[in-house]
Amino acid sequence: MTEEIINKKRGVPIWAQVIIWAALAGLLLLVGFGLRRAQNPMAEIGKPVPDFELEYYPGYEYNGVKKMKLSDLRGKIVVVNIWASWCKPCEQEAPDLEETWQLYKDGGDVVLLGVDYVDTPKGAEGYLTKFDISFPNAPDLKSNISSILNRQMGVPETYFIDREGILRHVKVGPFTSVKEITSIIQSIE
């Protein structure tokens, strides 16, 4: 019996070891990746913003185009404001944003782009009407845009993209004045 036990003493076969270590490495990589994304949820300032596509709410198109890509706006300063009708702080900044748009819309050099984050069509309509908003607005379908800009989206957040498509400034939370918005835009010029 003892002899038999000695005979049976053997190590872990190499193929099994390979599988074990590979599985562990895979798991750690996966979690590590998740961790990296959790730690840097936001698009990096100073880096180009990955392209995204959007389809405007009817009546809120830009230049009469229904559908467009961010890259179509290369050469202009793009201010992406993320909002939602259920978001109270957004209401605070909505009039200021509209006023800013009135300053820039004729210049054609700056585009203010409202992106409506997980919202109901009815809620969005009510909100846009309530604050007399006229700047281009689109829903963030499947949260595609917000997942590019910030995985841990809170609303409102505003992203300032320069003429080369590079992210230059991010404002988290509502603006308190028109001047705050315009001064950021001017700093990008």
């Binding site: 259920w86 109901t120 069509p121 009815k122």
Partner: peptide, 10 residues
Amino acid sequence: TQACKEWREL
């Protein structure tokens, strides 16, 4: 949340 109330209404 308020947002969810709206989705239920939707």
